[in-house]
Every structure is written in structure tokens, then in C-alpha cells.
């Protein structure tokens, strides 16, 4: 599976209703490194989902607390409003219809730590 297979996929809640599309995938470097000279393994932490904007986002103003330069920053924030993060634990399955979430999943803040 390559990342492009996931980007832009529909995201469905427990009842099968569409809640948005995958705009990005968050990873965390917390696995064991393969060797001393390698980076830690990157584990899929969750998906960024946006209810409206249906394309992969290359700017990410909303996730990093950036606003400058005005008005590009403002526009991009407005454009990507409503983006939320769902954790891997809340993913029930990935199939042809899209990414299915577990009932009672949590919408988290998309801001990067």
C-alpha cells in the first residue's frame, strides 16, 4: 500500500455516513530503529480528515499555528477549517468504500505537538 492509495479516500463513521476525506497521514517515530544509523520506525498515528476540502494539503497552516503571510495564511486556514485527527485506534477497517471509523470515534485537534 502506498500513501496515495489513502489520500483523498472517503472517511465513513460507524453508521456508514461520510464524514470527510483523508487529507494527510500522521506518523510517530517511536519504533525500534533498524540499525544505529537509522531513524526509528515510523508508525501510523492517525489520519487527518477534512469534511470539505478534498485534496491533499501541502501548506498545513492550521496544524502549525501559522498565519503569515496575510492573506494567504488566513485563506488557507479558512479553506482547511474543520480538519480533525482520528487516531489509528479509531479506524475499524480500510476497504474499497474508504476508511471506516469505529462507532464513538473521537475527533481530535489537528494541531501538531
Amino acid at each position: 500500500m502506498i500513501l496515495s492509495d489513502l489520500l483523498g479516500r472517503d472517511v465513513l463513521d460507524g453508521t456508514g455516513a461520510k464524514v470527510g476525506k483523508v487529507t494527510d497521514a500522521r506518523f510517530v517515530l517511536d519504533g525500534l530503529p533498524a540499525s544505529e544509523a537509522s531513524l526509528a520506525q515510523a508508525r501510523l498515528y492517525g489520519f487527518l480528515v477534512n469534511p470539505r476540502f478534498h485534496r491533499a494539503s501541502y501548506l498545513g497552516y492550521e496544524r502549525r499555528g501559522l498565519t503569515a503571510p496575510w492573506p494567504i495564511g488566513r485563506l488557507e486556514r479558512w479553506w482547511s477549517r474543520g480538519t480533525f485527527l482520528v487516531l489509528w485506534e479509531d479506524v475499524a477497517g480500510i476497504g474499497d468504500d474508504g476508511v471506516r471509523l469505529r462507532p464513538g470515534y473521537t475527533r481530535r485537534s489537528p494541531v501538531l505537538p
Partner: peptide, 19 residues
């Protein structure tokens, strides 16, 4: 010119030397 302006404001690239 738009991407230049965007990156010149990005602290991940520019540190304290943003526009």
C-alpha cells in the same frame, strides 16, 4: 513567487529569519 513568499514565512525552514 507565491511559494517563495510562503516558505520565507515558515519557521521550520527559516528559524528566526522569517519575513
Amino acid at each position: 513567487y507565491i511559494p517563495i513568499l510562503i516558505i520565507a514565512n515558515d519557521p521550520e525552514y527559516m528559524g528566526e529569519r522569517v519575513n
